[in-house]
Design a protein around this nucleic acid. Structure first.
Lengths: 233, 233
DNA sequence: CCAAAAGTGTTTATAGTACACCCATGC
DNA sequence: GCATGGGTGTACTATAAACACTTTTGG
């Protein structure tokens, strides 16, 4: 490694971006965790993250993390919160800007990085103790996604382009951790007119085949511009 | 000033906390702005802020800014967003964590700091161009407070301990930028049972005296623990 | 023909919205 | 007694919530 130093007149903390990547596999809500190779917290599970490069924006840094861990791009990302307690990293002062991402697990091919022993999707109901303050960061993210999915159609980011209404409902139930009434869920969803029904139907299922829909993003943008507030659950 | 240097193996950006302090004076919603003395952006108006000290948390830094600008403490503060575009400060890479605060203007005695020409409360409908990306930061804060006041009783932070319902309504109208129905506002507010009526009434007003209320914080905490979602407007 | 999940409508309760008149006070 | 803003109630509308049966498909 090249020896180089950066000098400042005042102390500058280090900045990382840590990513909470939620994934849906059709059954339950997962989160991407890595197992650390090095100290501090070697062998512990943690959120994937990276130090912010000199010339990249915070969001670009989050995108870079996603590239690194699964060679994926173009996904939904939003800034969650910035964690900055002086003691949160034992090495030096490190401020972490957390980003939350939503993906379909099937789109990801998880690749453990150089400094990672393993990388896995973990069900959000079975999360081990995490390194640093990452348990707290993850809890903040879970609270955020639960609150947010009630009034913004972020759930579509976790579904394939075409999906059935019961599949979408399963996602909502996985995120909210409770079951919803089938009839009311469907009624409310269809009344928003943000779904386009496709002619295609499910195949090879041992019950009545559900029909596929896709998210009508254009229609959604129009509604948002009109300031219409979509409460989805 | 003592000459001292801080050296790191990797580039470390500088971190500031910038504060959007909203104040209410009984009439309209204001925001605290300072006029910069030094370059860059000398003489331009900006949000008050400070570089984060080595040993303080981000929130402590925001509290320190409030102390410095008006010798005030113990006010409502929440983290808004972190702004980190590489080009947002012409001197060096500076990442800014923005905090939003809510205060009563009467509690503040504005004191221009060493590096400030002036400090003022400015009506949010009359904001000049601001230094750095502060116009964008302020807009983000206005959007946040408008969204947030609809379902959390943050408005009480901007009122005196005792207030009348029409006074509180005036605050809501100032924040939301539209007028609300008196009867429905009162009905909804009282139905939440988060107000305690005092025996005291307004004095020396040329109309029927309104009665004073205070916010029942204890009752509010109970409702929040039960997961009850208070939509206030 | 049975199991399994999809699809469909109605009724009831609750909350939101719109709206008009009387009341107390200072001048 | 009049101008000013405070306080109250009701009817209407819209949305949320609860709930049971029929349909399609594979095995």
């Amino acid at each position: 490694m090249e020896e180089q130093f950066y000098t400042y007149q005042y102390p500058h903390p280090a900045i990382t971006v840590d990513c909470i990547i939620f994934g849906f596999d059709g059954q339950s809500l997962k989160v991407m965790l890595i197992q650390r190779k090095s100290e501090p917290f070697a062998k512990m599970w943690a959120l994937p993250g990276a130090f912010v490069d000199e010339a990249e924006s915070l969001e670009s840094c989050a995108e870079r993390v996603l590239q690194k861990e699964g060679n994926i791009s173009g996904v939904y990302l939003e800034q969650l919160f910035t964690f900055g307690l002086p003691s949160r990293d034992p090495r030096e002062r490190v401020i972490s800007v957390a980003y939350m991402g939503l993906v379909k697990t099937a789109d990801f091919e998880l690749i453990a990085g150089n400094d990672e022993l393993q990388i896995e999707w973990r069900d959000i109901s079975e999360i081990p103790d995490l390194a640093f303050d990452h348990s707290q960061i993850l809890q903040t993210a879970i609270d955020r996604i639960r609150g947010k999915i009630r009034y913004q159609p972020i759930g579509f980011e976790l579904m394939n382009a075409k999906f059935t209404i019961p599949q979408l409902q399963q996602l909502y139930e996985a995120i909210l951790g409770k079951s919803l009434d089938r009839r009311n869920f469907r009624k409310k969803l269809l009344s928003m007119q943000i779904l386009k029904q496709l002619s295609e139907k499910q195949q090879n299922v041992a019950h009545k085949a559900a029909s596929y829909y896709e998210f009508d993003r254009e229609r959604y943008e129009v509604l948002m511009k009109e300031g219409i507030y979509l409460e989805l659950v």
